[in-house]
Simulated assay, not measured.
Amino acid sequence: MKEFLVELTTTVPEGTAPAEVDRRRAAEVVRAGELTATGHLVRLWRPVGELRSIGVWRADDEGELYAKVLGTLPLWPWMTAVVTALEPHPNDPGGSAITA
C-alpha cells in the first residue's frame, strides 16, 4: 500500500440538527477504528487550537483512498481534503535506508 498525507477540514452545514452531528461523529469514531484495524488509517493529529485533522493514510492508490477509504467516513460529505502522495525519504529515521 502507498502512504498519503491527508489534511481534512470538516464544516457542518448550517442548520444541521445537533442530533445528526452527534450521530455522525459517533459513527466516525467507529469507522476510524475499522480503518485503523485494516491498515488504512496509520496516524491522526489535530493541530493545537484548530478544527482540522492531519493524518497518514494508506491505500493501493489515490482512487482507492477516495472511494474506499475517505469516502466511507460518515463526516465525508462535510469534509474537504488535501491529499499528498508520500514516498520514503532516504534519511527517514524510521526507515531502513539509513546506514552507519
Rank of each mutant, 00 (worst) to 15 (best):
D61C: 09
G39P: 08
H40V: 02
G63F: 09
V48R: 06
G39Q: 08
D60P: 00
V42N: 00
L70Y: 07
S53N: 12
E50Y: 01
V56F: 00
E62C: 00
R52M: 11
Y66R: 15
A59V: 10
R43H: 13
A59M: 03
W45Y: 15
R58A: 14
S53T: 15
E64C: 02
T36M: 11
Y66A: 14
Y66H: 13
L41Y: 06
P47M: 04
E50D: 10
D61S: 08
L41N: 03
K68L: 11
E64V: 12
W57C: 09
D61M: 02
L51G: 15
R58M: 04
V69Y: 02
V69W: 00
D61L: 08
P47I: 03
T36D: 04
A37H: 10
T38D: 11
L44W: 08
A67F: 06
E64A: 12
A59R: 12
D61H: 10
V48C: 00
A67G: 09
L70H: 07
G55I: 10
R46L: 01
A59T: 13
R46T: 12
T38C: 01
K68M: 08
G39S: 06
T36F: 13
G49Q: 09
R46S: 08
Y66F: 15
V48Y: 12
G39E: 06
G71V: 08
T36L: 11
G55L: 09
G71K: 05
D60E: 14
H40P: 01
E64W: 13
D60R: 15
R58F: 03
R58Y: 11
H40L: 08
V42R: 15
T38F: 00
A59H: 04
R46F: 03
R52E: 01
R43W: 05
G49W: 02
R46Y: 01
G39V: 04
T38K: 08
A59S: 10
L70G: 00
W57E: 09
K68W: 03
L44R: 11
G39W: 13
V56Y: 01
E62W: 06
H40Y: 08
A37R: 14
Y66E: 13
R58L: 05
R52N: 03
G71F: 10
R43L: 15
L70W: 03
D61R: 09
L41P: 01
I54L: 11
G71R: 05
P47H: 02
G49F: 01
W45A: 03
L51D: 14
A37Q: 09
K68A: 14
V48A: 05
R46A: 10
R52D: 07
I54M: 10
L51M: 05
L70I: 06
P47K: 06
G63N: 08
R46V: 09
R46I: 10
W57S: 02
W45M: 03
L51Q: 12
L44D: 11
G49I: 09
V69N: 07
V48W: 11
E64Y: 00
L41H: 02
L70K: 03
E50K: 14
